[in-house]
Amino acid sequence: MKAELSPRLKTFLYGLMCVLLIPFVFPTWWMATSSVKPISDIFAFPPQLIPESYDWTTYSKVFELQPFVQQYWNSAYIAAVVTIGTMAVSSMAGYAFARIRFPFANTIFMIVLLGLLIPSEVTIVPLFRMFLKAGMVNTHWPLILVPIFGAPSVFATFVMRQFFVTLPAELEEAARVDGLGRFKIFRMIALPLAKPALASVAIFTFLHSWNLFLEPIVFLSSAEKFTLPQALTQYTDAYGGPMWNIQLAAATLTALPVLIVFIIAQKQFVEGLAHTGLKG
C-alpha cells in the first residue's frame, strides 16, 4: 500500500484541487446562472455568482427565434443513428480483424488505419462536392454517413479489435463445437461479452457526433436542418453580435441533459474512456 499522507499534506492537496477545479466547474455554473439573469444583470459589476433576480423569458425566446425543438431533435437523432451505426460497423470489422483469418487481413487493416491519419477536415472539400453531386447537401446524410463509415469510425474499429484480441479463443472454439457458425458466434458469444468496449465506443461516438461543428456549417444551410452546435451560434442581433442571455439559455439546454446522464453514469463514462485509451 501507499504511504499514508500527513494531515497537513492532505489539506494542501484538497486546497490545490479546489483551486484547480474553478476553471472546470465555474463556466458551467456561470452559463446556467447567467441564462436566468435579466439582460441588465449579466454584465453587472460586481459579478453576481448567484442571480439576484430572475428572468425566465429568455428560455421562451430560445424557442421563438429558431426552430429549437426541431434542431434539438436533429442533433439527438443524428447522434443516435451515428452511435448505433458505428457500433455495428466497428464491432463487426474489429471482430474480423481480431478473430477471423482471411487473406490480406493485415494489409486491409493497415489501409483502414490510414483513416486515423486523415482527419475529415482534410477531405472536407471533395466530400462537399461528392454530396453536392449526390443532392445530399442541406440534408443530414453527410453527418450520418461519414462518421459511421469514414474516418471517425476507424478509431472505434481499432478499440473493438483490441478488445476482441483479448477474448479467449477457447470460448469461440467451444461455441463451434456447440454448433455455432461465425455469425452466431459473433452475435451470441463475442458481442455480449464486448459490452464494456461497446459502451466506450458508444460514449465517444455520441460525444463526437453531438459536438460536430465544421461539417454542419459546411453541409447545412437552412435553420430547420441545423444541429445544436450550429444553432447556438445563430442567436445574434441585427449587427451580428451575440444575444448573450439567449445563447447561454440555449447552451444550457444543450449541455444539461448530457451532463446529467454523465453524473448518473460517471463511472461508466470515465472507466469506459480510460479503457479505450489504455488499449488504443
Partner: peptide
C-alpha cells in the same frame, strides 16, 4: 470437448 480453461460462456 472439455477445454483447458473450461470455456464456459461467462454471460
Amino acid at each position: 470437448m472439455v477445454f483447458q480453461n473450461y470455456a464456459l460462456y461467462p454471460h
